[in-house]
């Protein structure tokens, strides 16, 4: 039998974007196929919302009101931020696994960019899961936790947009941070610290406007509010300007992180090619 078959490529350098799109789709498909994972993640989501809905409902109303908040806003805020956090399980370690398993070399012998390829796959996975959880929240939060959706329906498209941006930013932070794995098995520890920073400075349970002023200022100097607060803020009684500011912050951080990724990626490849990690 002959395997002579001239193949391949229509031109010498086919568009690389096809590979990235395929990686993204692969990620989406994996999330959709992993039903056990989705069910058990939903279980965490339900438990969390139950626990915190009781907490929020038992906070003194007048103290919440100082920030103009009602328990329903808080419940929806948490429902949004947890979409992001639960949508990225092990968000800070996926990239590190690839490094730790010595798979970098495999990706290096491909025609496309190693980091963008892995990130596209991660984005596919996490955006799909986050959006699934968001869809779920639209049904279960009003039903189970008696908190009607505090925004008009047409604004949901904006929420979806910020969720996508949040996932993109979170994975970017995670991927850049996980590059420390090259120097040794530290990425788990770095991942812990990063995720706790995201919780605290991003405002996982409570919006950043709830924080003391000096912490607010500090928080907004980091990318973390763009991951969580920017999504949750849609559900708070704030002006459109505040929401727009959050969105612009996301765009700004996206640009900064993409630049950082470009530099870190270049540096990482040079390092790997020199030392053969």
């Amino acid at each position: 039998m002959s395997l002579e078959l001239t193949l391949c490529t229509k031109n010498a350098h086919p568009p690389l974007s096809k590979g990235y799109v395929a990686a993204f789709k692969m990620g989406c498909r994996q999330t959709l196929h992993d039903r056990v994972d989705f069910v058990s993640t939903t279980m965490i989501y339900l438990v969390l919302l139950y626990i915190f809905s009781t907490i929020f409902r038992h906070m003194p109303l007048h103290e919440l009101n100082v920030a103009g908040l009602r328990p329903e806003n808080m419940i929806w805020y948490l429902a949004m931020t947890e979409c992001i956090m639960l949508g990225s399980p092990g968000g800070y370690t996926f990239g590190a696994h690839i490094i730790a398993q010595g798979r970098l070399s495999e990706f290096l012998t491909r025609p496309n960019s190693l980091s963008i390829f892995i990130l596209c796959w991660l984005w596919g996975r996490t955006i799909t899961l986050s959006l699934l959880l968001f869809l779920l929240s639209l049904v279960i939060v009003p039903l189970l936790y008696q908190a009607p959706l505090p925004i008009e329906l047409w604004k949901i498209s904006f929420v979806v947009m910020t969720i996508v941006l949040s996932c993109v930013i979170l994975q970017l932070i995670g991927f850049i941070a996980s590059m420390v794995e090259i120097f040794g098995p530290f990425s788990t520890q770095v991942g812990w610290m990063m995720s706790k920073m995201t919780f605290v400075l991003g405002g996982l349970y409570f919006p950043v406007i709830f924080f003391p002023l000096h912490i607010q200022h500090f928080a907004f100097l980091t990318p973390f509010p763009s991951v969580l607060n920017a999504v949750g803020v849609h559900m708070l009684p704030v002006t459109d300007v505040t929401i727009l500011c959050g969105f612009l912050m996301q765009i700004l951080w996206l640009a900064i992180l993409l630049t950082a990724l470009y530099i870190a990626n270049k540096w990482m490849i040079r390092y790997v090619m020199k030392t053969g990690v």
Partner: peptide, 29 residues
């Protein structure tokens, strides 16, 4: 490249999906 001790296939997915992905990576017709 084939490494006997490493895999370039996606562990939890059917083999064909990895192949389809690779075909896109190399921009095959």
């Amino acid at each position: 490249l084939v490494f006997g001790q490493r895999s370039q296939l996606w562990y939890h997915s059917p083999v064909i999906q990895s192949y389809d992905l690779l075909s896109k990576v190399y921009g095959l017709d």
